[in-house]
Design a protein around this nucleic acid. Structure first.
Lengths: 201, 201
DNA sequence: TCTATTTTAGTACAAATGTACAAAATTAAT
DNA sequence: ATTAATTTTGTACATTTGTACTAAAATAGA
């Protein structure tokens, strides 16, 4: 692992543990036992590191398989997808803790976010349609309610990290599982009888 | 309005607009046209101001009538309650934008939050029970799912402000109405036929 | 081995911030 | 009107941070 990579790893760790409002380039340098000028050689400033980490994270997320891309995909696939996504988010949790502040300082990130949201929204709508055709979810739900559900899922997906720190303070897998379950439960009242049976299996 | 109150009003405005990571005592003083030492006379530092504003906010929230306290309260009351709460949150939105960072710096706030959550959780459970007895919501929903719903409502309640800034950037009433609607829709699939009719009226 | 390039370290400086303190100005009390 | 208490201001200092610049050290290429 070269210096640049080490910087990113160390920075991620410190940001996750203490927050971007506390950690400066000098802290990272001290933690690594190198001079802060050395970090400056690779990154202009702390924001530059944050931006790079954000890009890394989004790149990793984009490599994940699309939500239940196969037409016959059931609820099992969905649960796995959710867990994987939440794991990725947990690894880069500092981003979500400071999401608003970060986007205020770096508006480009907002654009990337909006783009991703649009894509994912359409994917989810398609998925729900898919489920409806399979008789897994109810047919008497208005489109606006599905749209709202998607918004809510997104909102929870982006801020479960913060909420967790505010309340239970679960760590690692426990946190991921808890909130994967929360998202799952959000889905429960939409399920048909058939859907419930499939979910239980 | 005395100086202390003016400080709080100005601070709230600046925090809401620019964030606690940017605004210092000196900024507030400059905005008010007084010396920063004058502010220091009333508040030890910026965190002291933030803490006071938080206390103000919670006090105002605690004065709100309990969720549908009357036994026969229907969905109309719920909708109004939600809107009022979201309005209060919007007034003190900076708190929610920086919630995690604030609680990290001032752990006392976390305690107050936990307490409030416990109380509200029980209130909501009772409300849902109430609705079930009135035939407004379904009877086939497991307790854990209701518990999850409460968590989700709380999570959205605490972070819709952040999510809004990240996405649509709605202002004032528009934001409040949008997210009141989102919370309402979250409730939709739990409604019985009777409940839907009541909601539509 | 010698030279050029890349990487790392050291230092220095300006700006901002928290904090402390004393003096001035204002207000209230007698 | 005089005194005491409160409020406000000005200033100064240590610390932190971002930033720039130079020199040293390490590495690679010939």
């Amino acid at each position: 692992m070269n210096t640049k990579e080490k910087i990113l790893v160390t920075a991620l760790e410190l940001f996750n543990e203490q927050g971007i409002d506390v950690i400066t380039i000098r802290h990272i340098a001290k933690e690594m036992g190198i001079s802060h000028s050395n970090i400056q050689y690779y990154f202009k400033n702390a924001d530059d590191i944050i931006y790079t980490l954000y890009t890394q994270h989004i790149a990793a997320m984009n490599e994940l398989p699309v939500f239940a891309s196969s037409p016959g995909a059931g609820l099992g696939t969905l649960r796995e997808s959710i867990t994987t996504i939440l794991q990725h988010i947990y690894r880069y949790r500092f981003i979500y803790i400071h999401f608003v502040v970060i986007t205020r300082r770096m508006p480009e990130i907002k654009k990337v976010y909006a783009q991703r949201f649009g894509i994912r929204r359409r994917q989810l709508l398609r998925l729900f349609e898919n489920y409806r055709e399979q008789g897994i979810v109810r047919e008497d739900i208005p489109v606006e309610v599905w749209e709202s559900l998607i918004r809510s899922i997104y909102l929870i997906g982006d801020f479960w990290i913060s909420s967790n720190e505010l309340t239970t303070g679960l760590k690692g897998k426990k946190a991921v599982n808890y909130y994967a379950r929360l998202l799952e439960d959000l889905f429960y009242p939409y399920l048909t009888e058939k859907g419930k049976q499939l979910a239980a299996s």
